[in-house]
Write a protein that binds this DNA or RNA. Structure first.
Lengths: 367, 367
DNA sequence: CTGAAAGCGCTTACAG
DNA sequence: CTGAAAGCGCTTACAG
């Protein structure tokens, strides 16, 4: 009567997992559970036997059963720049975060968001402190500010809390991040440079306009690296002249200084045929060109934010490089989940593709 | 003693689902299960009550528990062109299929692959027949051959078996496919045309070389549409001259005729500056150019197969358009899974991004 | 150091 | 038409 299930399968498919092991080892399932979870209170001999059997059986726990019964809850903290009309880039990260949030909720994993003003170092620090004061099982952040990030990193390292970097990478010695999700910024700029070189004729030159949002411009790791990659290709390898200037604006106020500077450069250097903006403020350049009815220049920049998309549609921006912010938010959290809950091995880096977007493939990219 | 769990949560989180409903309706959980699954044998009155309560509770079944206990197995059939050194494009689909396969296996879903020779209509038909003879809960296929696909479609429609198209879309009246996963071929060609237009100077022209693999060339829906999209942009909108020829080769044998034809075109039309190949056989053109030491031409084509990647690296191919074949294989099957097992709503189309790949972003794309 | 029992939320026979 | 019971593979107290 109790023998309904034939045990003639010599397969991988080991009957009923933990129960089978218990039977073969002549112990109870409680004991098996203990050794499988490395909990104390099992005789060395028993432990060894159980490990041996579970090894031979190639035992893999049934995650479904595990999640059904487990009462353990997980909470992740996500540090994320405030998405505002001035910095809409982050809305897409937010959507990715929310998708992950919805997906893991039923599985007992909760995600808390900590928003900060990306132009304010202090605001970042405050949220870092809140996170350190709380009890989180995993943390995800864009390491915008070196000092403050290192505080958090040290805290995580000492408490063995896994953390994930996204959008911007930090290659510091203390960095033991579980993974980095985002582009290789140098390569990204290099690719932009390659594309631009295709457009140019001998004698043409290029203008790079770095429009920063931080009060502390030396902190924009990504923009700096993109510019370096771009410069390497356009100037060093393709041999075109590259002009460049920086413009610093924490988001508010008029852009008259930018306009003046830009027009001045274009007047002095009529050989400029392409303008490159290594960040999402590309639309500001397009707006100035439009306002002053300047045509015949190609504009290449970053990120599919609404303002940029408008100018891409109008033909005032030629190419945008997309970093898949949605995927960054989503995959970053899922890698914490996969690591902590599913016990999966996580790659040290998940580099986002450097996607070239033109008016014509916009809709496909966004769907 | 049995009251350990406080029931003071007036939340969405409805205690224990089916049990709570049973309690509130004063019936057993068996009866609740029946109406939730729309099985017969429940009094209309009881049914209505249970439906009402479950509605008020906003009841969502716990999929984890469901899967743990359910003995129902699902089997999907995938029709996939044989991946061979001549058609390596399909290796990547295969990997996506295998990933999906591994992921759903533990959940009681099995995936069977049916491989066919993409140059042989007959081979496709044979596999279609096998699938129709079997008992499958879901089917995925690239609808390469119209007649044969329609047979399968009619079979599926009458048996209410969901089916998914991938790689190639078919917009026939009988087509009630659950979804289509792949590019919009016309737009894809149009984008290629736009990119090419950026490279050209007035007076330049373009050559389109369509290298087919089917014995029955009129069946290449994708290639035809790409060519049309390309032509529309390059010729109609940008106003460049477009030469084109077709070359038909079912995979085997020498390419001397192709070489002769290509060299002839280039000799007659020295104004040709770009060659466009609307399919993965782009490397064949690159090989001929290399062999004959022809430089200064730009080559744009499709798909990240090894041969193409080699020439991209060498600089003999300038741009490749990627269709994310891995994702096609993976997402197509997952949409069957999500539909059938998770009861999710599926979008009618999942258009793959039209990704431009150059030597410089190759590694990021592939990782 | 070890075992026996209850239970996660559901489905599946089986018995009325 | 309806209910009571067993069980999916695991974890969690609790009792020795």
């Amino acid at each position: 009567m109790s023998g309904k299930k034939n045990k003639n399968s010599s397969e991988d498919n080991s009957g009923s997992g933990i129960k089978l092991i218990a039977k073969l080892a002549s112990v109870s399932i409680g004991t098996v559970d203990r050794v499988l979870h490395n909990r104390p209170g099992v005789a060395e001999k028993t432990k060894a036997l159980i490990l041996k059997i579970s090894g031979e059986l190639n035992y893999k726990p049934n995650i479904i059963a595990r999640r059904l019964v487990s009462k353990k809850k997980y909470v992740f903290a996500v540090l994320i720049p405030a998405a505002t009309p001035d910095h809409p880039y982050w809305y897409q990260h937010l959507e990715g975060v929310d998708k992950a949030k919805a997906e893991v909720k039923e599985l007992g994993v909760y995600i808390e968001k900590f928003s900060f003003d990306q132009s304010e170092r202090k605001s970042f620090l405050n949220q870092v402190k809140k996170i350190m004061a709380g009890k989180y099982d995993g943390i995800m952040l864009p390491p915008f500010f070196l000092e403050e990030t290192n505080q958090l990193v040290r805290h995580c390292n000492s408490k063995k809390i896994p953390y994930v970097f996204y959008d911007t990478n930090l290659k510091e010695k203390e960095n033991k991040a579980l993974t980095y999700i985002g582009q290789d910024a140098f390569k990204s700029g290099y690719l932009a440079g390659k594309l631009v070189s295709y457009f140019l004729q001998p004698g043409d030159s290029v203008l790079c306009v770095s429009i920063n949002a931080l009060k502390n411009p030396d902190q924009h790791f990504n923009y700096i690296q993109r510019e370096e990659g771009f410069k390497k290709q356009v100037e060093d390898e393709a041999g075109f002249k590259l002009y460049s200037f920086e413009y610093n604006n924490p988001g508010k106020g008029d852009e008259k200084p930018l306009e003046n500077k830009l027009l001045q450069e274009l007047t002095y250097h009529p050989d400029i045929k392409v303008i490159f903006v290594p960040n999402p403020r590309t639309y500001k350049v397009a707006a100035i060109l439009e306002k002053n009815r300047i045509k015949g220049l190609k504009v290449v920049g970053y990120d599919l934010i609404d303002q940029n998309i408008d100018y891409l549609r109008k033909g005032m921006i030629d190419f945008l490089i997309s970093q898949e912010p949605f995927q960054q938010g989503y995959l970053g959290l899922m890698s914490l989940f996969n690591h902590l809950i599913l016990n999966q091995k996580i790659e040290k880096e998940k580099l986002m593709p450097i996607t070239l977007v033109m008016k014509e493939n916009l809709d496909c990219i966004m769907s």
